[in-house]
Design a binder for these strands. Structure first.
Length: 575
DNA sequence: CTTTTGGGCGCG
DNA sequence: AAAGCGCGCCCAAAAG
């Protein structure tokens, strides 16, 4: 097996050069193992090259892009990959998140070879038009530095012991290709019905609110009447002023700030307005624009290393933040609907972050609960309220749930009070909140010790490694407030990142089993994987996904089980 | 005029 | 005494 250095240029004459469904490959450049460059102009098929591409390790930058084109146009399935952009992120400990922030080819060529790459030719390629001299030079330049970069990165990987993480990230790339080509199915008719109803409702609320709020303004300050009359409800500044004029003691218009007026009719109306405004502007309005003209589906861009923890991020549109909570959320998720004769299989890990905390901290009470199938929130409730397990009330359990999750993130009493108010609609004093935290710490001393230890270690070293070997860099704090942030990050990142490693490991094996069967991989949301498959496949797909997710969990968690819950439905459902 | 920043809020 | 972690998107306001 040898290294093959690869890059492609795509036809950008319609400005669609990034779209594998609407653009052709204009050139394919290879650097053969013997160092010889080779340019294939306007490939019609790659039958001769296919075995070579599939049997060697393909090296390049942001290879998901190239591989998508080669798979879609030529049926070439590249699975052995070394992507220098992804490698750089692994080496940087997740510092280089977001696009073109020091991880592009240009950046890496400069960093490792000291050369300046001229990218001005990048967007000028066209299928069927011969290369100019300058274009030819450009495409060779794009591959000629790859061997040097690879070599230096490999040395660093070895020196830092990041081989396993590199391996995991590289073997995730075929799944990202699978994901982006698959796309999410959308029921546009259902979306339009929701849009009509919500737009109507929002406009009614807007009119009422403007009337009530401008009224207060004219009483208060006569000369400002015109501006207040046309209050923009989306302007936090104007809205704060208007509410202050009405006598509300607020400094911000966030829902937390407004939560102390939860019983006030005007505030209720305002919160409903804000919710609808958010839903309409962020989700409803733009979604139809993302329907792909060729596939009729939604094809977001996924970044497998989009976060410091190694989680995926997603954009245009972000399918990781679609409303899901409550009745409204359930209704919204139903717009993501499988084709006729197909089902959507969604699998998510049950309370995986708390399980990871239990494992890492060797917290025997967590281990006992998860091993024996005791509900951890109920267990915590019984401990902090000092009642037997079976006597825990609904309210007590929901308080305990907030405490369990919050402590994982290093929450303080004020934060706990706020979260209880927001999530559980439970009002507690600061003293009570403080007591809950103490009770938690007393009930779970090992978890408490672990979190204290790791936060100190994080602050001291400004870098951590998770159980899967992933490097987690923390930024140097400039003041005490930032020190606090670093300590909280240090508590959370080893847990969050291990979840990312587990899901990536599962994904690699799921790809091998399900992609060849024509199953589509349509979304991933941190601890959840979503697929679309033929109805008759749904049972087998569910089993395979559950099996691989739990197997991946047991690779890293030894003392307690990881459980994946699978649902099969006509649409993307959360159970 | 365009770009950047910050508040706010959707998800895990 | 003490701002709960990780993201992307929309909008308004400020900055260039």
């Amino acid at each position: 097996m040898a290294f093959l250095y690869l890059d492609i240029e795509t036809d950008n004459s319609q400005g669609l050069g990034l779209d594998p469904f609407r653009s052709k490959v204009a050139t394919l450049q290879l650097l053969l193992p013997n160092g010889r460059p080779c340019i294939i102009k306007d490939p019609e098929n790659l039958d001769a090259l296919k075995p070579i591409l599939e049997r060697n390790i393909v090296v390049g930058t942001n290879l998901k892009f190239d591989i998508k084109f080669l798979k879609h146009h030529f049926g070439v399935n590249i699975t052995q990959i070394f992507d220098i952009m992804i490698a750089e992120q692994v080496l940087s400990g997740g510092e280089l998140t977001g696009f073109t922030k020091g991880r592009s080819l240009k950046d890496l060529v400069f960093k490792y070879c000291g050369a300046m790459l001229d990218k001005t030719e990048q967007t000028g390629f066209k299928h069927g038009v011969p290369l100019t001299k300058s274009q030819e030079e450009y495409v060779i330049n794009d591959i000629k530095y790859l061997p040097q970069i690879l070599k230096q990165q490999q040395a660093k990987i070895k020196a830092t012991g990041l081989e396993a993480v590199i391996e995991r990230e590289m073997s995730t790339i075929p799944s990202v290709v699978w994901l982006e080509l698959s796309g999410m199915p959308l029921d546009l008719k259902r979306l339009k019905e929701i849009e009509a109803r919500d737009t109507h409702r929002k406009e009614a609320l807007e009119a009422e609110l403007k009337k009530e709020l401008s009224c207060a303004g004219s009483q208060q300050t006569l000369n400002q009447t015109p501006s207040i009359k046309h209050i923009n409800l989306n302007s936090t500044k104007q809205l704060t002023e208007a509410l202050k004029a009405k006598g509300y003691k607020i400094e911000s218009t966030s829902k937390e700030a407004l939560s102390m007026y939860a019983a006030d009719p005007l505030i209720q109306k305002l919160r409903e307005y804000k919710k609808l405004q958010k839903k309409l502007s962020s989700f409803i309005k733009t979604m139809p624009d993302f329907i792909h003209p060729v596939t009729g589906r939604i094809h977001p861009s996924f970044d497998q290393y989009g976060t410091r923890s190694g989680r995926f991020s997603c954009r245009e549109p972000n399918l990781q933040q679609q409303p899901s909570r409550g009745e409204e959320g359930a209704e919204w998720r139903a717009i993501f609907r499988a084709r006729h004769g197909y089902k959507i299989v969604a699998a998510d890990f049950s309370q995986i972050e708390l399980r990871i905390l239990g494992e890492l901290a060797e917290e025997q009470e967590f281990i006992r609960a998860y091993t024996q199938g005791i509900d951890l929130h109920r267990l915590t409730a019984s401990k902090i309220f000092k009642v037997p397990l079976e006597e825990v009330t609904k309210t007590q359990r929901s308080i305990a749930k907030t405490v369990n999750f919050g402590l994982n993130y290093g929450m303080w009493k004020n934060g706990l009070q706020l979260r209880l108010r927001e999530d559980a609609h439970i009002e507690v004093s600061l003293g009570e909140a403080e007591q809950f935290i103490r009770d938690f710490q007393q009930a779970y001393p090992a978890a408490t010790n672990y979190l204290n230890r790791i936060s100190k270690e994080g602050l001291q070293k400004l870098a951590l490694r998770n159980r899967a070997g992933r490097l987690l860099k923390l930024s140097t704090p400039r003041n005490e407030r930032e020190e606090g942030t670093v300590k909280r990050e240090a508590k959370n990142l080893p847990i969050q990142s291990l979840c990312a490693d587990i899901i990536k490991d599962a994904l690699k094996n799921i790809y091998a089993r399900l992609e060849p069967k024509g199953v589509l991989f349509i979304n991933t949301v941190h601890d959840e994987l979503v697929f679309e498959c033929k109805e008759e496949q749904a049972e087998a797909v569910s089993r395979a996904v559950k099996e691989e997710m739990e197997k991946a969990g047991s690779l890293f968690l030894k003392d307690l089980p990881c459980v994946a819950e699978v649902t099969v439905a006509d649409y993307w459902r959360k159970d």
